[in-house]
Write a protein that binds this DNA or RNA. Sequence first.
DNA 1: CCGCGTGATGATGTATACATCAGGCGCTTC
DNA 2: GAAGCGCCTGATGTATACATCATCACGCGG
Lengths: 243, 243
Amino acid sequence: MSNGSEARARFERIYRTLRRRICLLDYPPGRRLREEDLAEEFKTSRTPIRRVLARLEDEGLLRSVHGVGTIVTDIHIDDLQQVYQLRVELAELVGKLSPVPPDRRTLEEFRQLMARGEALVARPDAREFARLNMEFFHLLMELTANEPLREISERLYYQTTRNWLKTASRLAQYREMLMNEIRFFLREMADTVAAIEIGDLKVVGHIRRSHVAMSFARLYAEAHPARQEEGERSLRPAVSRSS
Amino acid sequence: MSNGSEARARFERIYRTLRRRICLLDYPPGRRLREEDLAEEFKTSRTPIRRVLARLEDEGLLRSVHGVGTIVTDIHIDDLQQVYQLRVELAELVGKLSPVPPDRRTLEEFRQLMARGEALVARPDAREFARLNMEFFHLLMELTANEPLREISERLYYQTTRNWLKTASRLAQYREMLMNEIRFFLREMADTVAAIEIGDLKVVGHIRRSHVAMSFARLYAEAHPARQEEGERSLRPAVSRSS
DNA sequence: CCGCGTGATGATGTATACATCAGGCGCTTC
DNA sequence: GAAGCGCCTGATGTATACATCATCACGCGG
């Protein structure tokens, strides 16, 4: 049995590695991945690689075209609006469904992330920021025992997260935007740690909900300076005239 | 391009066929699927079949074990509690996120489903009931334009739906339970059609939410007659003492 | 007679040869 | 010279041979 799950462990390793590269823009949108190259790098054949690529394609990070190649998808903020809307709602559920009172170790890890975030103010770095954001997300996911919710949230998170780096990297005032985001992120972490210390996971969910919504609004404003208010409005579902 | 998507179309066809068989218990839990048999049936080789099986495994409907076989998972109601909790919340979102005003055709299809449901009272049939339930679900999904929400809801639906047939089939008062469920389902459809006619999709979401929650409660009660109230209570998240 | 080891069997996992397809380069022709 | 046709290349999709693993039956030994 130790060997029986070896294949699955390798699959998971390759899968996470590639997903990380895509989301950190090591593989930027439009980049073509050759199955044989990946097979060589991970010391295996095309077959297991293809399984990983198939899953990444199911999740919308890749697109395989017969005769052309396997290409990292290029996603515009407009296409991600629905994903963000869903993420906003799911964020709140993390504190509602099967909340797990965090132990001392988890709280300590939150504090360490905050320390790394504060260090980031002195020396801003987009990649480190993205990594921090990712680790913070995974820590948040440990606050719910609802496994399906965790899986789905993770999937949606990885569909949207690389968009920030992409938008930022081709922006004129790249440095200002990064600093701005870092400060927002620091506030989110501080609020989250405070809520955890109080022991109210529902509040953690609300904080996360707010920041996901605001993060999207800022990205949307960058992409469509004219339609700023429109993007913010559409995140809040239209109030139905009944009720 | 017509041929380029031919492979994808076949994949989708095989995938949906197998998923349907699993959820209608044509492939009951524990059933072993041989890749070569499936390859022969669908006139292809093991390779495309394996891609389909991999996806079904990702979604929790199958489990492949090296040297043993590919086995339909056996899921107990207890393991599905988290999935149901999530489904309850997502049901409401269908009416909230990007609601699509149904056209005349959609409303007509809802009415046709209701007619088939009423015919079911005269001649109860578990399989037809399951099919109806499935088609009703897919129609409901057309009421939201939020594609990620649709995908996720579909995934969770197929993880839970076969559990009803399984529970019912090995029950003593199988016929009574079936009739009971049919009547609940008829009420849900009638309420839904009424809400659609009024044009309030939020209400449709609430109706669905209620029925998903009640459906789980009934199943849970069947499985654990002693802990009935426990199951119902745990579906409603504990009210936090703050706020 | 019971228990343990070993080999046969048949399944999934892997590697690889082959089929198919899209795009680009170059030749031909008008 | 430009446009169009066709071949060539390299990619993914498919089929299949082979490796690995788990199970069970059989036989040997205690």
